[in-house]
Design a protein around this nucleic acid. Structure first.
Length: 472
RNA sequence: GACCCCUUCGUCUAGCGGUCCAGGACAACGGCCUCUCACGCCGUAAACACGGGUUCGAGUCCCGUAGGGGUCGCCA
């Protein structure tokens, strides 16, 4: 039997972190088992579903590399099929029409709560003669669930979970307007799509019991369920799009790489011994539901930062170049001249070792374009005022002017010789120089910076802070 | 309130009865390296929620307690 998994978001907002992880687990499980991973947009609630949300979710999945195998199924296109299944159930006496008013239902809920019961609906119309139906009331259709015994789910993550059938009420299949509820359409669609493994958030565990009853009523094979623990916020409370959690696009905008986000999400609730850095290929080899934990994890960005830094360092300069240059243009809010672009491109190798995010990377590259885009940092200004700074910079001007070999090795030899001649440590020359060239007290190696900047630009920047004595 | 789930360092976790005075990673702190910042390397501090059992032996099994979370719609 081929494994078929699915990710079924409802398009009422962006793709949030929890959804992204659910999608990732479904994708990984399908890959691992050599199966298929499908997408379904749960848009039966036409009032809350929007086209923008559909686009945002599909975009987010695409960015993460979690697009479905084949085109996504839009649930609203299957309304007729959902109604047809409900009609079958009605005809077989496994479902019935309920004419209770919303007010009556509200009273039932209150009564049930007072009695300390879980099942809310009191089965008013379960066995009542349809002839008693009030005129002019559109009924809902409810499933006739068993009154005795218990429903057991052998969950692949949670283990055996049982609920007494008395605690499962006759839930609604079709609304009064004839449209299907989520509970009904999920089951019909999962069956029709051949879904074998339902991997989703823990918050659906209770729904599984109801859905299992519906599968049984139709005589359909139940899929295996795997309810993965939710991701909580730093405060330990549920993290969901409804509570202000960030969408994946927010992480993209902060400069995180999709592979870093996926790696981080993967390690939230799943582990493989002591392995921490796990790329997509490895994950697809190693992933298994048996290693998914049952306790919720908190979403903490500390490790995400560290993983992102790792993946930035790992990324080939070529692959990173276009992205980095885009970030730099945005950072400077202008286009780059060919010379600036060339310098920035050569600076990527040095800058990426120091960046945790793409935003950091752009910051680290900025000085290659402008001299000091934000002026000198306070620490840099201090370095320029330090004792001996003036002498060191004048020495550089002198030594650099006549240097033939303007390469990293060449300038290094010249600057080291200068420091020796002045009788100071290398740092006494390198630091003021760094401040003059980059506007900062921290940067890639100073000789690398000089080599990339070139003689002309290097001298110009030094002269800017160390004007030569006016000659007459 | 009812039902269901969870509980190892600050965080993510390893641990599937003895090999655990509990291991790794991130974060923190100290040091080395060094032209700065990173990287890298070395080191320090840091946890089995609590109480009962079962067992020769429990972080690991069972039962309670406490705490946390989830679900109880003609939303998904």
């Amino acid at each position: 039997m081929t494994v078929v998994t699915r990710f079924a978001p409802s398009p009422t907002g962006f793709l949030h972190i929890g959804g992204a992880r659910t999608a990732l687990f479904n994708w990984l499980y399908a890959r691992r088992m050599g199966g298929k991973y499908l997408l379904r947009i749960e848009d039966t609630d036409r009032a809350r579903s929007t086209g923008e949300a559909v686009a945002a979710i599909l975009d987010g999945l695409d960015w993460l590399g979690l697009s479905g195998d084949g085109e996504p199924v839009f649930q609203h296109t299957r309304l007729d099929r959902h109604a047809e299944v409900a009609r079958t159930l009605l005809a077989e006496g496994k479902a019935y029409r309920c004419y209770c008013s919303p007010e009556a239902l509200r009273e039932m809920r209150e009564r049930a709560r007072v009695l300390g019961r879980t099942a809310l609906y009191d089965n008013t119309w379960r066995d009542r003669d349809p002839a008693e139906a009030p005129a002019g009331v559109d009924p809902v259709v409810r499933l006739k669930t068993p009154l005795d015994g218990e429903t057991v789910i052998e969950d692949l993550v949670q283990g055996r979970v049982a609920v007494r059938n008395a605690d499962i009420d006759d839930f609604v299949l079709l609304r009064a307007d004839g449209t299907p509820t989520y509970m009904h359409s999920v089951v019909v669609d999962d069956h029709d799509m051949g879904v074998t493994h339902v991997i989703r958030g823990d918050d659906h565990l209770n729904n599984a019991f109801r859905q299992a009853q519906l599968f049984r009523a139709m005589g359909w094979a139940e899929p295996r369920f795997a309810h993965i623990p939710l991701i909580h916020g730093p405060d330990g409370a549920k993290l969901s799009k409804r509570h202000g959690a960030l969408g994946v696009e927010a992480y993209r905008e902060m400069g995180y790489l999709p592979e870093a986000l996926c790696n981080h999400l993967l390690r939230l609730g799943w582990s493989h011994g002591d392995d921490e850095v796990i790329d997509r290929g490895r994950a697809a080899e190693w992933f298994g539901l048996e290693a998914v934990g049952r306790a919720p994890a908190r979403f903490d960005t500390g490790r995400l930062d560290s993983l992102n830094a790792h993946y930035i360092r790992e990324a080939g300069d070529g692959r990173l170049a276009d992205t980095a240059l885009d970030w730099l243009r945005r950072r400077l809010a202008r286009e780059l001249t060919p010379a600036e672009e060339e310098r920035a491109r050569r600076g990527i190798a040095g800058a990426k070792a120091r960046a945790r995010t793409l935003a950091d990377l752009a910051d680290g590259l900025a000085f290659y374009a402008d001299g000091q885009p934000d002026g000198y940092t306070p620490k840099a200004a201090k370095l320029l005022r330090a004792d001996g700074a003036r002498a060191a910079l004048e020495g550089v001007l002198e030594a650099a002017g006549g240097l033939d070999d303007w390469t990293e090795a060449g300038v290094e030899a010249a600057v080291r010789a200068l420091a020796e001649r002045l009788g100071v440590k290398l740092g006494a020359v390198a630091q003021p120089l760094r401040a003059a060239l980059t506007g900062s007290h921290a940067s890639p190696g100073i000789f690398e910076v000089m080599a990339i900047l070139g003689r002309e630009e290097t001298l110009a920047r030094v002269k800017a802070v160390c004007p030569p004595p006016a000659s007459d």
